[in-house]
Amino acid sequence: MIRATAASRWTHGITGTALAILFLSPLLWSGWASLRTGTGFGLENYGRLFTSDNGIRPHHVFNSITVSALTVGGTLLVATLGGYAFGRFRFPGRDLLFLVTLAILMVPYATILIALYVLLGWMGLQDSLIGLSLVLIMFQLPFSIFMMRNSFEAVPRELEESAQVDGCNSFATLTRIMLPAVRPGLVTVGLFAFLTSWSEFFAPLILLNSTDTFTTTLAVVNMRTASHGSIDYAALEAGVVFMAVPCLILFAFMQRSYVRGFTSGALKG
């Protein structure tokens, strides 16, 4: 906004870079600490992570992958259809449903998870990965529906009309014409759903109660909370890195489209 002098450019650069290093250092430290052993560097801590009594097991990783896949798939499906409906159609109750969906944000879930625990029990979904995924999908809806509605609204009408002239019905229009046009929105919604479901802690803590169904996050936190004596900090940091690596890789690849999707969707409507 104001023309920068050379001196102010330097202050800006140095302050910013120092802060950036400060923000990155905990991440770098956890990687370093997870590899450091008594004698040097190695994978011993990771070995203990997978073999100690309270450690994680392959089925925990499998459970996490299942929950993430179900949540990402379910969120994309519901939000695509819903976003198409809200962005392109008028029907009775449209505005009310949209408002109620956004209200999920205002009623954060710690307060209704107790009831969801009872409700899923009645539905025969207690201690179930499917039940957990359904709950996680619901919590993704306000952001996802908002995002996808804006994405669909931004597609030019002519594109849709020309498809209809060519004889496409509304579903063919959606799959052939609209989906490619809203891809940035889908990437943002999918990435957000993955990051949340992969590392979510509170909902699995309440809804899952046998170690067979634990997700990796629950299992790693359990290494801290179930230990009465000393905590194996190094193995804990190995667990942190193990959980973070998939997210960091995805984030690195998709940061650009994620941020773009966010900035284009967040301010409209």
Binding site: P26, L27, S30, A33, L195, W198, S199, E200, F201, T217, V220, V221, R224, I231, Y233, A234, L236, E237, G239, V240, M243, A244, C247, L248, L250, F251
Partner: peptide, 13 residues
């Protein structure tokens, strides 16, 4: 990108 629970464990160490 780091889950909040993981971040809590990170800071614990």
């Amino acid at each position: 990108a780091v889950g909040f629970a993981s971040a809590s464990l990170l800071f614990l160490g």
